[in-house]
Amino acid sequence: MNLASYRKKSPWILHYNAGGCNGCDIEILACLAPKYDIERFGMINTGNPKQSDILLVTGPVTKRSRERLVEIYAQMPEPKVVISCGACASTGGVFRGMYNCEGGVDQFIPVDVYVCGCGTRPEQIIDGVVQALAILEKKTKELEESVKLKREAVKEGHQLNRRHIADEIKPVLS
């Protein structure tokens, strides 16, 4: 029995609307409702970036919401997965090229799963989240390996902070 394989059964969701039309947002709400019930997969809508694993973004990124988007993404602890819900979150959609739209979430934060459709159907959203789970597991493994290496590198001060993680990895065995 491998305990680590059960980790992916508990994805907690954070939802942010970066300037969309509400269409995908109400479908995300419909996912919580009895007909689709995503709590079956252990998903909770936390509303708190510090405790979330999956960021669901809807809407083309407007100029005012882009800083909030990046801020929220930065507050989430790794491993984290970003899903862009809907055509306009993925590419900008019909809003592409409008003067206050940046167009596409992936210009600002790395997106792992693109969910198509205008608006996305709840089934598509659930499918997207299930795909994200596999990516989440992969990222968890990668993170564990890399942390092991880097911990050796930042022994000075006995503290692990953001600046140190970005440091160049020194050889473990000298």
Binding site: R7, K9, S10, R40, G42, P77, E144, L160
Partner: peptide, 28 residues
């Protein structure tokens, strides 16, 4: 609670899955 709200609800061991996941997150 889920059944009272006419949903299927999470599996019985869901809190422990959450436990395992939270242990693997980055320590912030």
């Amino acid at each position: 609670k889920a059944r009272m709200q006419r949903r299927i609800g999470p599996p019985l061991l869901q809190p422990f899955y959450d436990f395992l996941k939270l242990a693997g997150k980055r320590r912030m």
